[in-house]
Design a binder for these strands. Structure first.
Lengths: 117, 117
DNA sequence: CCTAGTACCTTGCATTACAAGGTAGGTTGT
DNA sequence: ACAACCTACCTTGTAATGCAAGGTACTAGG
């Protein structure tokens, strides 16, 4: 596979990653209060590389949409942290997105299965 | 849920859709020669709404990346059609993307399961 | 008081999905 | 013959957004 094809493959992978990013961030936050840097670490563990410049604007968007809220908390080793958690409506949104995810998953699996036939 | 949250939810769904778009198009083409308008119809059946303005540039990108190739064919009812099929390297890319997809799927399921606990 | 570490956020760029509009070949009705 | 319509290709302009890079500010340790 030459460079161009590898690039395209990486690009498509990146697209997939982007698509599930918001969903994954909401999932991580749904597990309990957490602040930005720790969200980054959690996502790395699940093979989802995200960087600060992506995460902060995204958290703001989700907060402005009413899905998240935050409280400030002091830290023992540095500046204060914004701890995010889901609002009631955020929790509902996560449920809806999980349903959507399953639907897409079924669509893709049906396409994959048809190849194997 | 008020309008803003619904919009955000729709937006996130749209992001998911975008992320798997290229993959799904490659999957559809992997099933055999097909032309653009029929790709649109197939994708609609699997809940993936795509429009012409999205599909044509995407097919060009994938062709330029060496994943697709096409042949012209006459039609009985209209202008000639471009029938696309995967190149050898396109087939390899589809396999790789299927692996990537499964990985993301596992990541998300592990996140979802942890909520339920 | 300077360096290092942590944590927040913004700016500018590139990519890309989509709405809208454009070109052109074929068929049908009059 | 020609108008109206359908099919099929493609392009242009806009808006959204992920990311690299850079910026601000608080704390702790020497």
């Amino acid at each position: 596979m030459d460079e161009k094809q590898i690039m395209e493959l990486e690009n498509t992978r990146a697209q997939m990653r982007k698509g599930i990013l918001e969903f994954c961030i909401l999932l991580v936050i749904s597990k309990g209060k957490i602040y930005a840097s720790d969200i980054l670490k959690k996502l790395e563990k699940t093979d989802l590389i995200v960087v600060e410049g992506t995460l902060y604007p995204l958290l703001s968007r989700l907060k402005n949409a009413g899905l998240l809220e935050y409280t400030w908390a002091e830290s023992k080793s540095g500046p204060p942290r914004k701890y995010y958690k889901l609002t009631k409506k955020g929790k509902e949104a996560v449920k809806q997105l999980a349903i959507t995810w399953n639907k897409f998953n079924k669509s893709i699996n049906s396409l994959i299965n048809k190849i194997d036939q």
